[in-house]
Write a protein that binds this DNA or RNA. Structure first.
Lengths: 390, 390
DNA sequence: TGTGCAAATGCAACCGGTTGCAGTGGCCCA
DNA sequence: TGGGCCACTGCAACCGGTTGCATTTGCACA
């Protein structure tokens, strides 16, 4: 077995308390004693137990990370780069990341299902064994090992939580508030259509970034510009659409609502959205859009592929701009004009926010930290001046 | 505060033991009692404490994941897709992933540095305060919160460990064996040039896959084929090169050692490798290679970009094939011919292996599970029949 | 009417650290 | 020489569950 603190204490002929204090740098322990204990601990290969320390100190040094829900999955390139930044920031401060499984949708109360089964079986003796089995299989709801977001918070497995992609009136807020665990979002957190009070977050400037992208297209001479939007219900989806509308309105350009198509935040969705636009005459019809702003890069790439397959040339026949600045945007042909978010930086900043919240918690404070990070338009080959049609 | 088991016990007028047994489905607890306790627990919103359970049961339900070292980073697309598969597999069984920070290189023994400082300061009284400060800042080596791989294992924070990219005679093996924690690799684990005995792993068929890619190029008529290799020291690098050599030898084609260039497993490295090949006359010189097999997709993409920038057309002037089958390979232009690894599946399989090891551990067994998963050649637009030169 | 046994529950130790408070010894000063 | 204070260390309770073993209760059987 691994050596315990008692082993070290015995080897050093002192009490556990002294060992504990010596190793945690308590100045009350005589200097020579401390050095001796440290040496012995090292010789024995002693390392304090994670679980025991966590129990006694009430801190696990872990930060929970909520995985994005569908349609974007865990392997979304944007999310993962963010995760890298978050992880680096957390680790530097001695914290680790605990990846939480996405909660089962709206989490049907497994406990009550169990209760029903139990109640039903309570009369019949024959059915009892079955119910027992079910009970132990399903387990008590509160004890389920399923480490979804709610689970890791309820069990006190994490000291804080990082979340991404806030939805409008995000349902996760209830759990977070119930347990009072410090948390922060990547993405502007809104409730009832306005920036939520008291919630900390870090976000890219979605409105400004989208506006910049569309302004760029307008500056190139485009006047009919379509918009492929992200998954419904997300704050970022609304913001980017808002930026699109602002740019169009500022230029005095009308927006045909049919130009606004849902791309569901995925490559396949972007492809479908573009196919819809093509069906509406894009590339052929003089009244159809001549440029497309896709609210993220993977949708833009899907759109680009669809356009290419339809025989259109990008950017000659249609200009396409994206949003996010994922690595893939650089390697497609033509390389994608996009709004570069400092993705990794956002992760780092979110880590800083959470660390600050944790620090403040020890002082019984609960500050609110909100930061909007500017994005930068990167012009590449997928956008070009409007050509006069033949 | 969160309710504890004692609170539930008090509310149900039973002892803690009974509550514990009731909630864990111990059949010794009377059925009615169990149902009553469960209901009360639910009403109170009770959830067992993670730390306490972990301490008492000696299991944390966490699987540690080693992040890949440089030059491939955490955000390597291959790694991340694998991580998704691993996570899904683990979560399904009730385990969570704990992402470990990469170990500081060869981990200079911080403890002994501390010791030196302490010893040096032991005489002078003035320096003692400084040393104290340093000691508490640096902390006892064994107690460092730094949750690198060694840390999380030593502290017993994880029940098992998943690792990627085994190196030849991987130094991490020492730590893993020292603490006797179950572990498995993604990638063939070799020691002293042969498959390591007693180690479990899952891997794609690197040799066969590379051979298939090169055979494909040969079938297209290419006779001089270059090879961009991955980072030195990795088993997979050697295996893929081996596959290249096998295919060339089987076709009776000579290999000029200058055609084998280090691409360091990165896009930038692939680019540099291609630039070297171009400098050697590729695309101009009749004696230069006409096709390139890059040992992974990001290097292939780097090579492709370099070739394009040099004015070469792919595949007309040079054919390029990659390895891995990352999503990005589909969207580059031309789309990349590659060896598709079932990346997500590999993650799932590795999870299964680890779960099996954990299961076996409870029975005091230590099985060895090794699986090589076949890869599939996907022919796309980046490879074409050799054209007669003008 | 004992006796035996099984079912149901409680007691208390234990997992491995942390920490409030008490105790010990040395030294200074009155 | 006694009192007081400080530096250092130990005792024991506690964090919140788990579990071996003892105890209580109920009932069947001799």
């Amino acid at each position: 077995m691994r050596p315990t603190m008692s082993d070290v204490a015995a080897a050093a002929s002192v009490s556990k308390s002294t060992v504990s204090r010596a190793l945690s740098g308590d100045s009350r322990v005589k200097y020579e004693t401390r050095v001796r204990i440290m040496r012995i601990a090292q010789e024995l290969g002693y390392t304090p137990s994670f679980s025991a320390t966590a129990l006694a100190r009430g801190r696990t040094w872990m930060i929970g990370v909520a995985t994005p829900g569908t349609p974007r999955g865990f392997s979304d390139p944007f999310y993962l780069e963010f995760l890298g930044g978050l992880g680096d920031g957390a680790i530097r401060a001695g914290y680790n990341l605990l990846i939480a499984a996405p909660s089962p949708d709206e989490e049907a109360p497994g406990g009550s299902a169990l209760m029903e089964a139990a109640a039903a079986a309570a009369t019949e003796t024959g059915a009892r064994a079955a119910a027992d089995k079910e009970a132990s299989a399903a387990g008590f709801a509160g004890r389920s090992r399923g480490m979804d977001l709610r689970g890791i918070i309820a069990q006190g497995a994490v000291d804080a939580v990082a979340l991404t992609e806030p939805a409008e009136n995000d349902p996760r807020l209830a759990v977070l508030r119930q347990y009072g665990v410090p948390f922060a979002f990547l993405g502007t957190c809104e409730e009832n259509g306005r920036v939520a009070e008291g919630l900390s977050f870090v976000d890219g400037d979605n409105i400004g970034g989208a506006r910049a992208a569309v302004e760029h297209l307008i500056a190139l001479g485009h006047r009919r510009i379509a918009c492929v939007t992200g998954a419904a219900g997300l704050v970022s989806t609304r913001h980017r659409l808002e930026g699109y509308r602002q740019a169009m309105a500022a230029a005095g350009l009308p927006v045909d609502e049919r130009w606004i198509v849902d791309g569901e935040s995925t490559k396949a969705g972007g492809r479908r959205a573009m196919e819809n636009l093509l069906a509406m005459g894009l590339g052929r019809d003089a009244e159809a859009p001549t440029a497309v702003f896709a609210a993220n890069d993977v949708m833009a790439i899907g759109a680009l592929l669809a356009a290419r397959e339809a025989g259109l040339r990008v950017p000659d026949d249609v200009s396409i701009a994206g949003f996010d600045g994922i690595p893939m945007a650089e390697v497609v042909d033509p390389p994608l004009t996009t709004v570069q978010q400092p993705i990794y930086e956002l992760g780092r900043k979110l880590a800083d926010v959470i660390l600050t919240l944790l620090e403040a918690e020890r002082r019984k404070e609960a500050p609110v930290l909100q930061e909007i990070v500017p994005c930068r338009l990167v012009v590449r080959g997928s956008t070009a001046p409007l050509r006069a049609r033949a």
